[in-house]
Amino acid sequence: MSKKRNIKILMIIISTLFVLLMLVFPLASVLVNSFSKGLEFYFNSLKTEYFFSALGLTCIVTFITVIVNSFFGIIASYLLTRYSFAGKHILATLIDIPFSISPVIAGLAFIMMFGRLGWATPIIDTINSITGWNIKIVFAIPGVVLATIFVTFPFVSREIIPVLNAVGTDEEEAAAIMGASGFTIFRKITFPHIKWALAYGVVLCSARAIGEFGAVNALSKTRGMTFTLPLEIDALYLSGSSDSIVAAYAVSSILVLVSVILLVIRNILEYRSDRIKISVEERAEIKED
């Protein structure tokens, strides 16, 4: 028995050390570095125009991304779990594509579509000349939004699909037979099941949208106009003077704070959805009896 206890202690120590060294240290290091020139310097580096512009853009981009991807995620997961049709697995794999490719490629994709050589550029130009608008996509805010939507595309549906699979389709079928319309079924039956998973997906999606760097970096070149917070950090860090590097850490500390908050929300939601999962399983057991 004492041997087993030793293994237990050893395993706990290894896990704790790994988490401390690899995950907690970097967090602490951001905070230490950001305050290394004093409080006043810290707050001054958060008062620049560049910072406010980047903060505003990050909020706008994250907001649009979350709305678009939640809408898509709900509908796609409803489609993939409520109906059977040919090519379902292929569709599911296609939705997961952005998850497995480099964000830089996402940026490249929009450049190849809307950039100087892009096939869609003449279409946009025609629209602009007819309507007198001045729509620009690459190296402008729409490009940043599109790239962020691309990289976070499967985040919400991935969280909802397992929940809908676990709940099963009995209740919806019963409602449909009793004559409920599609929207009523969704509102009264499906949505209450998925609301925690949706919230969970939204948290993940916004965490990634706030922090997206590679894809946005390819599509955004104007500091103070189309830069999000990660790009602002990059610009400060690469400009190289010791002041601007500390400022880069100061901006980073804001993002650290946001990501820690999101992590806490995520854990609370996980706890909640676990309890729902258990109640679903219990119900299934009762049914079997």
Binding site: V19, L23, V24, P26, L27, V30, L204, A207, R208, I210, G211, E212, F213, G214, L229, P230, L231, I233, D234, S252, L255, V256, S259, V260, L262, L263, R266
Partner: peptide
């Protein structure tokens, strides 16, 4: 904490 790398922006 395990999921911190998902939440923390990669540039940070």
């Amino acid at each position: 904490l395990i999921e911190l790398p998902f939440a923390l922006p990669t540039a940070v």
